[in-house]
Design a protein around this nucleic acid. Structure first.
Lengths: 199, 199
DNA sequence: ACAAATAATGACCAAGTGGTCATCAGGGAT
DNA sequence: ATCCCTGATGACCACTTGGTCATTATTTGT
């Protein structure tokens, strides 16, 4: 019976069992956002998430029932797009570019955009659904200020550009797009998005 | 008619052990290309590849030593880009768009482009390396016909556009970009690429 | 002070992974 | 025919995964 769980590693020998469901739940969600963005849905593991949150993987299951549920709870939809879109149409490309870069630059580490790109690779239903919902919402937002029957296509082409840029700069992190400054990126993106939107 | 021509009974009870290393090697490579494109590096499994190739997973290991080796052998670099690039610069965007769409449309199922996008999501060294090599080669090809100090950036922005489009149309397979015909896609892509390249 | 309620744990499970290896069998050379 | 090299197999290994559940420890109500 040497079932000693772990012979007191130097750090914390008497780690008292905390009892605080709300805090734990929040910690798990944060950890999940991080892990899912870092590895994508399929490759992120519940145990790793539990470790980051400082709890056991059993507790994660207790709170969220399944990996898919956790994913759905942790990864939010797109935020603040409406604010960016609102305004005069002429400068829309600049606002979109600036908004995108600002958002990604401050914390690409657990941005849903990155998460969904990484996750969609695995054909996981949950990820595809979230991605679809996100796209639908984007198109709807743009529709409030743009018109024309090919708005959808143009919005989609802009989204494609952003996906590609995100892929290179924030996922693969190599090449010219990853090397340039945020300002330069914004400038290039403004020009390209303008071309897509109004070209 | 009434007598069943039992050339191939539903299940093969006496599956004789074939001995044909070259054919098997080729079959494994084909199966690997397919599987890696379908699931990405991390999520593709050697056993599944073996199954598709009609051999045992032990044989796959025997031929390729490791999953990473198999990946490197199976996923080739970009082909035929030089031919597309060669020609008058004025119509480059159209040729690139048409070449891209033609290639993806005929067999996106095991295109290295899709494979690398799906694989890079998992931060796998082998995938990242292949992707980097592919990008380097692309830039080199374009450099033979274009000049200017921001060629690299423009090429990268075009690549980003193609990645985004590939992501929507051939990976997620949803939305306007997935719904339109190949011809329409080519037209849109021509316009957008032209804007990126010469805008 | 005690007991009921329940948050948290950790042992456990079946399934699946990449990788190893003793063994077997096909077929060319003799 | 026979031998023997080696292509091919499948049992096996250590490990990881998502998920379950009996136990244990901590609050809270009384």
């Amino acid at each position: 019976m040497t079932s000693a769980p772990d012979a007191t590693p130097p750090a914390e020998p008497a780690r008292r069992r905390r009892r605080d469901p709300e805090a734990h739940r929040a910690a798990i969600l944060d950890a999940a956002r991080e892990a899912f963005a870092e590895h994508g849905y399929a490759l992120a593991t519940i145990r790793d998430i539990a470790r980051r949150a400082g709890v056991t993987h059993g507790l994660v299951m207790r709170h969220f029932t399944s990996k898919e549920q956790l994913f759905l709870c942790a990864v939010p939809g797109t935020r603040d797009l409406d604010e960016i879109v609102a305004g005069d149409v002429a400068s829309l490309p600049e606002r979109v570019a600036a908004g995108f870069v600002a958002r990604m630059e401050t914390n690409a580490a657990d941005d849903p955009f990155v998460t969904l790109i990484r996750s969609a690779a695995s054909n996981e239903r949950a990820a595809i659904d979230l991605y679809t919902a996100m796209r639908r919402r984007s198109v709807a937002a743009y529709r409030t200020v743009l018109d024309g029957d090919d708005v959808d296509v143009r919005v989609e082409l802009m989204a494609a550009q952003l996906i590609g840029v995100a892929f290179n700069r924030y996922i693969v992190k190599a090449g010219p797009l990853a090397a340039m400054t945020a300002g330069e990126l914004t400038a290039h993106l403004s020009r390209v998005l303008r071309g897509i939107m109004f070209g």
